[in-house]
Amino acid sequence: VEVSPDIYQQVRDELKRASVSQAVFARVAFNRTQGLLSEILRKEEDPRTASQSLLVNLRAMQNFLNLPEVERDRIYQ
């Protein structure tokens, strides 16, 4: 799965849209901590040159964001 270069903005938009914390998003989207998500968003590494471990996390976030909005909102509950 190709990771979109605007994945970082997509995540920020989703945090605002759903009014969820980084901690909640990190847990449900890719089963990691708020600290890691914060670092990923701060660095904004180009997905095309990202490490394998970062790509795994970015893909998981993208797959989560590809779910229908209704389903994502249900998962946040």
Rank of each mutant, 00 (worst) to 15 (best):
D13V: 15
V3R: 04
I40A: 03
E44S: 11
Q22D: 10
A18I: 15
N31S: 10
S19L: 13
A18V: 10
P68R: 11
N31I: 06
R27F: 05
E45H: 07
I75A: 11
L58W: 01
P5W: 06
Q34T: 10
D73Q: 04
M61K: 01
P68Q: 12
L67R: 14
Q52T: 12
L58G: 01
D73V: 03
R72T: 02
D46L: 05
R32V: 06
D46V: 05
L36Q: 11
Q10G: 07
R32C: 15
Q9G: 13
K16T: 08
V3D: 06
E2V: 15
F25R: 00
R17Y: 01
N63L: 07
E39R: 05
L54I: 05
I7E: 00
R42W: 07
S51I: 03
E69N: 09
V56E: 12
L58Q: 01
Q34H: 09
R72I: 01
E44A: 10
R48K: 14
A26Y: 01
E2I: 15
I7V: 05
E39N: 08
V3F: 06
L36P: 07
V70Q: 14
M61C: 11
A60D: 12
E69S: 09
R27Y: 06
D73E: 05
R17N: 02
L41H: 00
Y8L: 04
P47V: 12
F30S: 04
Q77H: 14
Q34C: 07
R12Q: 03
M61A: 06
T33K: 05
N57K: 09
V3Q: 04
R74N: 07
V1D: 05
Q34W: 06
F30M: 09
T33A: 09
V56K: 09
L15W: 02
Q62P: 02
S38H: 08
V11R: 00
V70Y: 13
V1E: 13
Q22L: 12
K43N: 07
V24L: 10
N31P: 06
R48A: 12
I7S: 02
L15T: 03
L67M: 14
S53C: 11
E2R: 15
E2N: 15
P68A: 08
V28G: 14
Q62S: 11
E14R: 01
A23P: 07
P47F: 04
S21R: 04
V56S: 14
R59H: 09
P5Q: 11
Q77E: 14
D73W: 03
A23S: 12
R74F: 09
A29F: 11
G35A: 11
S53G: 13
T49A: 08
P5R: 10
A60H: 14
A18E: 03
Q77I: 12
V11M: 05
S4Q: 07
Q9K: 15
A50Q: 04
R48H: 13
R74L: 09
V24I: 15
E14N: 01
E2A: 06
T33Q: 08
V1A: 08
E71N: 13
V28K: 03
A50V: 10
R27S: 12
Q62D: 06
P5S: 12
R59K: 07
L54R: 12
L36H: 13
L55S: 08
E69V: 11
Q34N: 08
D13N: 15
K43S: 12
S21F: 00
Q77N: 12
D73T: 06
P47H: 05
P5F: 07
P47A: 05
P68F: 03
S38W: 06
R72N: 00
L37Y: 03
S53Y: 09
S19C: 15
E44W: 01
V24W: 04
Q22R: 11
R42M: 12
D46R: 04
K16S: 08
I40Q: 01
A26V: 03
R17C: 01
A50S: 07
L58E: 00
L41V: 04
K43V: 10
L67P: 00
G35I: 11
A29P: 02
E45I: 12
D73Y: 04
Q34P: 07
P68S: 12
L65K: 00
V70T: 10
F30N: 05
V70I: 11
A26H: 02
A29S: 13
R42C: 07
L65E: 03
N63S: 11
N63R: 13
R27C: 10
R48C: 11
S51C: 10
Q34M: 07
Q9Y: 13
R59L: 12
L36D: 15
E14Y: 03
Q22P: 11
L58F: 02
E39G: 08
L37I: 10
S38L: 10
L15R: 03
E39M: 05
E14H: 02
L36F: 04
N57L: 09
A23W: 10
V11C: 03
R32P: 04
V24P: 02
V56D: 10
R42L: 11
L15F: 09
S51T: 12
V56I: 15
L37F: 06
T49K: 09
V11W: 01
A60K: 13
E71C: 05
Q77T: 12
D6C: 06
S51F: 02
V3E: 05
N66E: 09
Q77C: 03
L37H: 02
L41I: 06
Q22H: 08
K16C: 15
V11T: 09
A18M: 14
E71Y: 04
R32T: 09
Q9S: 12
M61Q: 01
S19Q: 15
L54Q: 08
R59Q: 14
R42S: 11
F64D: 00
L67F: 06
R48W: 06
S21T: 07
A50I: 07
S19K: 14
V56Y: 07
L67H: 12
Q52H: 10
D13L: 15
I40D: 01
L65T: 01
D6V: 05
Y8A: 03
E69C: 10
M61H: 01
E39H: 06
K16H: 13
Q34V: 06
D73L: 04
Q10N: 12
D13T: 15
D73K: 03
E14C: 01
Q77G: 15
D6Y: 07
V28N: 04
R59T: 12
E39W: 05
A60F: 06
Q22N: 09
P5E: 14
T49I: 09
P47S: 04
V70A: 12
S4N: 15
A29D: 02
S4W: 09
A26S: 14
L41S: 02
Q9F: 08
V20D: 01
L67A: 07
Q62V: 07
S51M: 04
